[in-house]
Simulated assay, not measured.
Amino acid sequence: MSSYLVTGASRGLGLEMVRVLASKPASEVSIIIATIRSAAPAALQEIISQAQGRVVTVQLEVTDPANVTKVAGEVKEILGGRGLDVLINNVAVSNTTPTSVTATTTLLSTFDVNVVAVQNLTLALLPLLREGTLKTVLNMGSIVGSITYAKRFMVAPDPAYRVSKAALHCLTRLYALELEAEGFTFVAVSPGWVQTDQGGPYADLDSPTAAKATLDVLSRNREDINGKLVNIKVEGWENATGLHKYDGGDLDW
């Protein structure tokens, strides 16, 4: 029985990952802690009502260090002496209004959510993760933040988002190297282009498909994924010829 904490669970991939986890038997997933900024939306409330007490919400403002510390205490109480097995850092911001790198003014605010908040929350929950069985942190990365593929994704509208994801990939790698001797797994997962508020309605994948494929990464060999940026695998997309393909391979970052 594993415990999970998913940030940004009000909508999009976060909501769908909570739904997927809640659909698994209690013998596999014991509790899902879903963080939200305010009241739980109807879709999340529905999941909670059907989860027989296995989905619990906590209010989290990831950019408020004091609130992060408070939430870590709440999570400890919820777990009741058990450790946290999996942390999924899903919260992110992106400016979908196209701009160039020379006109970017949101670098600091984007880093605050996409990188600094991940660092602060991971550190706050590290004692609980050390007490867990799986000791796993999944950071939501992105192929658009890959330096190797920078030219391919010049069409992406938000340079600040891309730079922040490049930094997140590096942060993931550093954690993996530093804590692998303790049995930790840190992995960044690129979910591709998804039909969320950020991705828009014409994206490649719907949220349920991308959420399931993202969580499927956790079933892979831990040594194979530790410290890497990993692509999701979606049947029928392994050999796509557009900007994205979803073949489950490692991505250069």
Rank of each mutant, 00 (worst) to 15 (best):
V116T: 13
M140P: 07
R130C: 12
P157M: 04
S219H: 11
I225E: 07
V144A: 08
S207M: 11
S164H: 03
A167W: 07
F184Q: 07
N139T: 05
Y175A: 14
A166C: 10
N120K: 05
A213V: 02
E131V: 05
Y149M: 15
V137T: 05
I225G: 05
I143C: 10
A213I: 07
V116Y: 11
Y175V: 05
C170A: 15
R162D: 04
E131L: 09
E178Y: 03
H169Q: 13
V194K: 02
Q195C: 12
A176I: 01
L215C: 07
T185C: 09
Q198D: 14
Q195E: 11
D224Y: 09
M140A: 12
V155C: 13
I147T: 14
Y202C: 11
V163M: 13
T133C: 14
L126C: 12
L179Q: 10
S190T: 07
A203F: 09
A150F: 03
R173M: 14
A188I: 00
V187T: 01
V137M: 07
T172H: 06
Y175G: 09
L218W: 00
E178Q: 08
Y149F: 12
D158G: 04
D224M: 15
E182L: 08
I143N: 06
E223Y: 14
R162G: 07
S164V: 03
R220S: 12
L129G: 02
S207I: 09
D216V: 04
L218D: 02
E180K: 14
Q119I: 15
E180I: 11
E223C: 14
L129F: 10
V118S: 08
D206T: 00
N120H: 12
A181R: 13
V194W: 00
V163I: 12
D112F: 03
K165W: 00
K135P: 08
D216P: 04
E223I: 13
